[in-house]
Structures are given as structure tokens and as C-alpha cells.
Design a protein around this nucleic acid. Structure first.
Length: 217
DNA sequence: TTCATTTGACCAAC
DNA sequence: GTTGGTCAAATGAA
């Protein structure tokens, strides 16, 4: 909510600036267009976030089994900032030993799994960016589902041995809602995190979702 | 040239 | 045998 309020106040400031420039002189049409575009975008984004937030609160009120999570509602650092590295490492993640034989499938392994419902932004057919860098590595038609399931892993899997993965499944009953499942973290100490991560300033660590926060360094 | 996506194939779990 | 998760070659975009 704090982030939304900040966007609204920024929009108000832009309106005031526009008002001032109009009262003092007639600005070039290009400047006027840019200014109106910025204001429109800012208020539009704030409105979208507010819509998602309300849906999330309604879901909580109804005590739904899975949480509607606002991908952009943050209380942490400013996520509009372009992190030089956006890696979805989870709090208690244990690094993968790449020397062991690979396990392609682990059914019933629900440890460290977190599922959220995510509303698509506007009429877009993709879920909003969760501010982490993912690389798609597969897509499958799922029995009983109209839409295919997409598989993503952390972009920095090799570099930092980051094991985080997510699955994105569009809901049959609501094509503009996605079920996003975050996977592959185990109960281990943060000391098992690759030391390569330690150059990430902790104050810039993203905080979404709760179980996806960076380890304390 | 590098990196991301697509997609058929592979394989373990059921 | 079927299904879901992953791999990796091919392809495309920047």
C-alpha cells in the first residue's frame, strides 16, 4: 500500500508541475504529450496495483486455501529500481551439488513449495513481473488443463547454483489468473548459500514473496 | 556473439 | 503405460 501511495503522490506532483507550466507559459505540444503520458501511466499503474491488492485482501477475508498475492505490492526496497542482479534465491535454500545424478522428477516432494494466485495485469495474457530473473526451460500440456504449464528456473542457476524454480499455470476457470508455484528450497542454514551472493548489498534485496527473500548475509 | 525461448525427446514417478 | 518435470539442440532476438 505504501508503494501505491507513493505512486499516487508522484502523480499528483506531476500534475502540479504540469499545472504550473501551463499557467506560466504554453509548453510545446511534445512536452505536453510526454507529461500527460507520464501522469496517465503512473495513475494507471497505481490503479492496477490497487485492484490486485483489493483482490488479495478479499481472498484473505474469504480464507481461501491459496493466497492471492500481489506481485508488486512491496513494503521493502523500491522495486522499480533495476537490480543489477535479480535472483530468486529462497531464504533457506541449499545449494545443489551438481556432481550427483540428476533427478528429473520428484512427485510428492512438496517441501519448500509455495503456491500463489496471480492476476494478470489488465488484459495481458502473462502474469506481472515478480521482479526476479527467470529463464524458461520447458512447457507442457497438462492433462485436464486447457492451458499449458510453463517451467522456469533461476537465470543464475549455473553461476550461483541457484536452485529456485517456478511453474506458471493459467487457470481454466479464469484465464486472467495464473497459479504460480515456487519450488526447490530445503530447510537448511543460510551458510549453505553460495558465497558468490555475498556481494549483493542486503539493503537492496527484494522481498517477494515472503519465502523468497534473500538470506541474511 | 551471447542469451533467452521453443519444442521434441528422455526418464523417473506413479 | 501414462504423466509430469527436465534436458538440450535448434532457433530467434538483441
Amino acid at each position: 500500500m505504501e508503494e501505491i501511495m507513493r505512486m499516487i503522490f508522484n502523480g499528483i506532483n506531476l500534475v502540479k508541475e504540469l499545472e504550473f507550466s501551463l499557467s506560466s507559459q504554453e509548453p510545446p505540444e511534445s512536452d505536453l504529450s510526454n507529461s500527460l503520458g507520464s501522469i496517465s501511466t503512473l495513475f494507471g499503474d497505481a490503479n492496477e496495483r490497487l485492484t490486485i491488492l483489493l483482490a488479495w485482501r478479499n481472498a484473505l477475508r474469504q480464507q481461501e486455501p491459496v493466497r492471492m498475492m500481489d506481485m508488486t505490492m512491496q513494503t521493502g526496497p523500491d522495486l522499480t529500481q533495476d537490480y543489477w542482479l535479480r535472483c530468486p534465491v529462497m531464504r533457506t535454500v541449499e545449494c545443489i551439488d551438481t556432481s550427483r545424478p540428476r533427478h528429473r522428477k520428484r512427485k510428492k516432494d512438496t517441501g519448500g513449495e509455495e503456491t500463489v494466485l496471480v492476476a494478470a495485469v489488465g488484459r495481458m495474457e502473462i502474469p506481472p513481473d515478480d521482479n526476479y530473473t527467470w529463464r524458461k526451460y520447458g512447457q507442457k500440456e497438462i492433462l485436464g488443463s486447457t492451458f499449458p504449464r510453463a517451467y522456469y528456473r533461476c537465470t543464475h542457476k549455473k553461476l550461483y547454483k541457484c536452485p529456485a524454480k517456478k511453474q506458471v499455470q493459467r487457470l481454466d476457470e479464469d484465464p486472467y489468473t495464473f497459479r504460480v508455484t515456487y519450488r526447490s528450497y530445503t530447510r537448511a542454514t543460510s551458510s549453505t548459500i553460495s558465497r558468490s551472493h555475498q556481494h549483493m548489498p542486503p539493503q537492496q534485496l527484494p522481498t517477494y514473496p515472503p519465502s523468497l527473500t534473500w538470506p541474511k548475509l
